[in-house]
Amino acid sequence: MVNFEYIDAKSLGDVPDLLGKRWGESEILAGGTDLLDRLKERLDTPKRVINIKGLKELHGIQNGDGLKIGTLTTIAELAADERVHKSYPVLAEAAASIATPQLRNMGTVGGNLCQRPRCWYYRGLEYKCLKKGGAKCYAAEGLNKYNAILGGGPSFIVHPSDSAPALIALGAKIELLSADGKEEMPLDEFFELPIDNLRRENVMNPNEILTTITVPKQPNGTRSTYLKFREKQSLDFAISSVAAVLQLQGSTVKSARIVLGGVAPIPWRAEAAEAALTGKTLTAANIAAAAKASTDGADPMTQNAYKVMLTQNLVKRALEKLAG
């Protein structure tokens, strides 16, 4: 780690100003599980680290008409929350699938949404890749079994978050605070593809902080689930995951939100699959058609064609589970 100055933020309003206006100069410390990794690898060498853990208003889950989740709510708290379990199973399952017990105790929901990619080229200082201002995406010509099959180019990272697909499938909104004030936006619009924003994965500015996540109350007849596939269950990121939220009216799908994790540089809305289900019943044939449609537009790399099959099978399983 390159040394830095350290500040305990005492008030939320101070944070945007303390962050400053340029990337790379300041970093927010919340759970720290991603930040310290990047600092140790010297991927980031901020002059200042601002610890926001002391900001009480950013902690905890409030239940109103839906959920209001403070950005500092830990993944463990989210996974253990009764209301989340009962009304938003997709979110509870996603949270429980993240990392390890220790990391869930440390990591926060905000951090899970804002974490940087796990691509091994990105994570190695010695690889001066596109994400780090270099000239090429090493994964394109190198080892890419975990990289993107959808939405890739010019960088082929995948977004590692488990909570993001679940929250997007639930129609969550986030609130960002900058020196200009608050701004609310659908989480769906938060993430950006490399073609739009090569160096960062979302729309945040250097002097912004993600403060709150709001999850709308789901209509009656909503069923949801999160299936995550990883090579091993004990500490691993998703190779592919699916968050599925269906609103059923009788046996007919009134609306469907299917969001994939681990396969694209952003949490990936499988819109073709959603369309394939809407207005249909969950028959084996309709499920199969939606599963196939979930990877529409997939363009696998040299070593990751298996992720297309895998993803389709996961979508099929998720839908079968929700049908059953």
Partner: peptide, 15 residues
């Protein structure tokens, strides 16, 4: 796993 581009082990960690 050896990276064909740089010749270094790409996975020299427990992740």
């Amino acid at each position: 796993l050896m990276d064909p581009v740089t010749g270094s082990q790409i996975n020299a960690d427990f992740e």
